[in-house]
């Protein structure tokens, strides 16, 4: 019997960042992870992130028993790999992290996705947000830029809000001008951010309800790093939200698990 350790990689090539996760065959435990900004060249970035994760684990490409790529840029991978949709990868990644989870909300840079998953980590139903920035991380980027706040700070700042601003629009472009108006009126950045989070949470929650959300619920993607957004979504849905320690790695983790399952 061959007891040699085998490694499997998952690479998630997204619009904002590219993440790679390496797992060991034994117990499918995470051996290493790496994440870099996508930049303008998916091919180079994908190569770089894979080399980075292999280097961290101290192994070479030849030690890999399988690779799965996922995300919007999966086709750009410069190495041989099986492609799997990020929806299936998120489902599998969340099952690995939170076996009790039955609904996953993934808030990425381009789209938000809601999926209902089976106990085996299969996708039972899913929906993507419409062709609209309001339901995506791009919305937060726009508002953070206007407020001159770092993306990493918006969550904690939002949680300090006492009177969240009511946004009268569901459009990111109009919300931008509305934000400027609110700033001119003297609204605090915390209240504006809390208002944005509420508006996004309403939109995201609608998606979750349309896939007939079942508890427990996990939130992944860049949106999971925003504690204000996570709380707003939890409040709107009336449930506790499970968030991975590194929310932007869960699709890559799922991809690695699927590579191991081949």
């Amino acid at each position: 019997m061959n007891n040699a350790i085998r490694y499997f990689a998952g690479v998630d090539i997204g619009s904002v960042s590219i993440a790679a996760v390496l797992i060991r065959s034994q117990k499918r435990e995470m051996a290493a992870s790496e994440m870099i900004p996508s930049g303008g060249n998916y091919k180079d970035a994908a190569r770089k992130v894979l080399n980075g994760v292999l280097s961290k684990a101290g192994i070479g490409v030849a030690d890999l028993a399988g690779i799965v790529t996922t995300g919007l840029g999966a086709e750009s991978a410069p190495f041989p790999a099986r492609q799997v949709s990020d929806i299936s990868c998120q489902a599998m990644g969340c099952r690995r992290l939170f076996p009790q989870v039955r609904t996953v909300i993934d808030i990425g840079g381009q789209f938000t996705k809601a999926m209902r998953i089976t106990p085996e980590g299969r996708v039972a139903d899913f929906l993507m947000s419409e062709k609209c920035a309001t339901g995506s991380g791009r919305f937060l980027q726009v508002i953070a830029r206007i407020l001159h706040v770092n993306l990493s700070e918006i969550g904690s700042l939002s949680l300090q809000s006492e009177t969240p601003v009511e946004f009268s629009t569901n459009c990111a472009v109009f919300a931008e001008s509305e934000t400027v108006s609110r700033i001119a009126e003297g609204a605090k950045a915390a209240d504006i951010l809390a208002g944005v989070h509420r508006a996004m949470a309403a939109k995201v929650s609608m998606l979750a309800k349309r896939v007939k959300m079942e508890t427990e619920v996990a939130l992944t993607g860049g949106g999971g790093e925003d504690t204000g957004l996570v709380q707003a979504v939890g409040d709107t849905l009336g449930v506790r939200i499970w968030v991975p320690e590194q929310p932007r790695l869960s699709a890559a983790l799922g991809a690695a698990c699927l590579a191991a399952a081949d």
Partner: peptide, 13 residues
């Protein structure tokens, strides 16, 4: 791109 992403997930289902 959105449609292709959805179709990929649907085929996997």
């Amino acid at each position: 791109s959105q449609w292709k992403a959805q179709i990929g997930a649907f085929i996997e289902a």
